[in-house]
Design a protein around this nucleic acid. Structure first.
Length: 653
RNA sequence: GCGCCCGUAGCUCAGCUGGAUAGAGCGGUUGCCUCCGAAGCAACAGGCCGGGAGUUCGAAUCUCUCCGGGCGCACCA
């Protein structure tokens, strides 16, 4: 509701400026006045116009107000302060809009086909808190795009032929002397003391230490890596076995959080289906790559590194800054493979994966995985308008190189629609690390935070964290709902735990490093998911107690005149009406944290309202109906805002 | 050396496409459950917005510079 009116207002002002002053304003800034008593929109544009028109801002503001006349949906316009133009919404009309706020999405991404890649954990160990931030950010962004009317494919890239998988293969073959069948029995549920991804977590850390013992050990690593890349040998078969088992574990872990995928493209197929050869031809043809004949990169195919200045004509010597794409031994680097993969995403490669069914969710949704020869009947992936890669900020350089390669091939539009959804890492506070029993050097103890490291086996596993959260939530539920059957209490505890975890990962902006702290993450009070869930439960209880359904109340009649008289109540409605502007804001800035902020603030305002107005004992029937409608409108907006973040609204708490 | 990110209340963070009195949560102090559930509400205390200079009618927000912290810059992925 808020967004629609804002767009209408901007259009009217733009037309007026053109007509009255013959000026074009590319971007008209719209703020909100400090309090709703002054109106719902504030336009500071007269200040900027003052220079151009050589008139005092107040004078300009007055002229604009006079020129605007009546705008549908608005009550009036006023000049305030030194020259603000404040716009007042017609509250009753706006409220009617909000009451029947159907879906009718109309946003910047409506109808677009978008690919979001997230999670992309190396398939060699259990998922940890850093991976959770990635997956939760990605999944929430998917939900935001879908809410705005986009068609979204969710992909989880699997680097199944890289060093990390090779390391675990080395661990099994040379440290534990285990063969295929023994590994198979470790994978099979019931045959091992711990889940396979946990087992590999420890083995991976062990191998990393073992490498430091001798150069010989490192040789085995390289040899194993080459075997896996080539395929058709025992290490490669074991790698496939491990990778598939770990991917299943990751899918299960993420499923606990309500995170699902459509397609798992694997590096093995990018190699074996010769995606690179096709990309290489294009890159050579367009001159994006050139063969270096001197300097340190002699004998390699290289490209100009993104962000570096183009070498001037007279510059002597080779561009030592260049990024190597094909090594002098003719093998292709990671960025090279990534270029090919991203050409595929945009449908520019001229090749496709084979597809096989891999995993099926309870709701029937099917996850596909890449294969050399796939099933004949499969959905089509790739060939999208825009992509978002949820990848941590440390990979900004390689990501930019891929973008520049695509631009260099002449695909300027695709390069513009290639978004590196960059976020900062999750780290542990030294305190937290020591509590977990890790040895922390004196040097590290002085730091604000220590990076999580799979290689060192240093971190908090996703499943462990979720288990602790569920246990903590269940303790609370148990004391409040002794009458409930255990399974039901567990279900609610899970919803609360997921709410707490997902909200925790979303409340920080992407650019902020999360210094993980158990106390904060395990909290259900204050700015948390459960706080917002609790507000919904309170609203639900009102309707339950009154024997009414919130849906019926929304469909029924109510006297909206109270909105004219009470600024606080109107503010609540207004906030509820800002849900779609929040979605747009999140998408435009690729920042889901705004959705978290919005949900919390709305819940806060609702709790305030709940405390102030005792609805069920209200004696004025008209007022009572209106208050019930208010609760229903806010409840619906709260539920929708939590849905955007993948957080359920429990029936009770 | 070059590039990116961060520095706002005791702690953790919002606010940064310049705009009206700098916000929240936690922690601290103090109130509020015969009343729709207190996982809640209210109040108080707490800030040269890292330092300096500049642009502007106006700067936490933009520019420059310095200081402090983090992360990148492989013929690794």
């Amino acid at each position: 509701m808020y967004l629609e009116l804002q767009l209408q207002l901007i259009q009217r002002v733009r037309d007026l400026l053109k007509r009255q002053y013959d000026v074009e304003f590319p971007r008209i800034v719209v703020d909100q006045p400090p309090n709703v008593g002054l109106g719902e929109y504030a336009l500071p544009l007269s200040f900027e116009l003052a220079k151009k028109l050589r008139k005092p801002p107040r004078k300009i503001a007055e002229e604009i107000v006079a020129g605007l006349g009546h705008v549908p949906g608005f009550e009036k316009f006023e000049v305030a302060g030194a020259g603000y133009i404040n716009a007042r919404i017609n509250r009753q009309e706006a409220a009617k809009l909000l009451l029947r706020a159907g879906v009718a999405r109309q946003g910047s991404v409506t109808g677009k086909k978008i690919l979001v890649e997230h999670t992309s954990i190396n398939p060699n160990k259990a998922a940890h808190i850093g991976h959770l931030r990635n997956a939760i950010l990605g999944d929430t962004f998917v939900r935001l795009l879908q809410a705005a009317g986009a068609k979204v494919d969710v992909q989880n890239y699997i680097d199944n032929t890289g060093v990390q998988v090779a390391d675990v293969v080395v661990g099994f073959l040379y440290l534990e002397k285990k063969g295929k069948s023994e590994i198979e029995s470790l994978i099979t549920v019931g045959n091992s003391k711990q889940p396979f991804d946990y087992y590999c977590w420890d083995l991976y850390a062990q191998v990393s230490r073992w490498y430091e013992e001798s150069k010989e050990n490192l040789k085995l690593r390289l040899q194993t890596l080459h075997d896996i890349e080539r395929g058709g040998n025992e290490p490669a078969e074991i790698a496939r076995l491990i990778s598939n088992a770990i991917i299943r574990r990751h899918l299960e872990t993420m499923q606990r959080l309500g995170i699902e995928y459509d397609f798992l493209p694997q590096e093995s197929e990018i190699l074996h289906l010769h995606f690179w050869e096709s990309a290489f031809e294009q890159l050579k043809q367009k001159g994006v790559l050139y063969f270096e004949t001197e300097g340190k990169n002699k004998g390699c195919w290289v490209m100009k590194r993104a962000g570096t200045k183009a070498a001037e004509e007279g510059a002597k010597g080779p561009d030592e800054d260049a990024k190597v794409i094909v090594r002098s031994n003719n093998t292709v680097t990671y960025v090279g493979k990534d270029i090919a993969y991203h050409l595929w995403k945009f449908g520019l490669l001229g090749r496709d994966f084979g597809y096989q069914r891999f995993y099926r969710y309870h709701d029937g949704r099917q996850v596909w995985i890449s294969a050399e020869s796939g099933e004949p009947d499969h959905p089509h992936f790739g060939g999208v308008n825009a992509i978002y890669n949820v990848i941590d900020s440390r990979q900004a350089d390689p990501q930019n190189n891929v973008i520049e390669a695509i631009r260099g091939l002449g695909h300027a539009e695709q390069a513009e629609n290639y978004h590196h959804f960059s976020y900062e890492m999750v780290a542990l506070t030294p305190r937290c690390a020591m509590d977990l029993g890790y040895d922390v050097s004196e040097e590290d103890q002085k730091r604000a935070y220590i990076e999580v490291s799979g290689r060192k086996g240093f971190g908090v596993k996703a499943d462990d964290l979720l288990d602790s959260l569920i246990a903590a939530a269940q303790k609370e539920v148990d004391t409040r709902h002794q009458e409930m059957p255990e399974s039901e209490r567990h279900g609610i505890a899970s919803q609360i735990a997921i709410g707490a975890l997902r909200y925790f990962m979303l409340k920080f902006t992407k650019t902020s490093v999360i210094a993980f702290d158990f106390k904060e993450a395990l909290s259900f009070e204050g700015e948390t998911g459960p706080y917002a869930q609790y507000a919904i439960v309170r609203a639900t209880n009102i309707f339950r107690k009154a024997g009414l359904s919130a849906e019926d109340i929304l469909a029924g009649q109510t006297d909206l005149r109270f909105l004219k008289e009470d600024d606080e109540l109107w503010e609540l409605w207004l906030r509820a009406g800002q849900l779609s502007s929040t979605v747009e804001q999140c998408i435009a800035t690729t920042e889901p944290a705004y959705a978290a902020k919005y949900a919390f603030q709305l819940a806060q305002q609702f709790n305030n309202f709940y405390h102030k107005h005792h609805i069920l004992t209200e004696t004025d029937e008209e007022k009572k109906t209106f208050l019930l409608t208010t609760a229903a409108v806010v409840r619906r907006a709260l539920i929708q805002s939590l849905e955007l973040m993948g957080i359920d609204a429990p029936s009770v708490m």
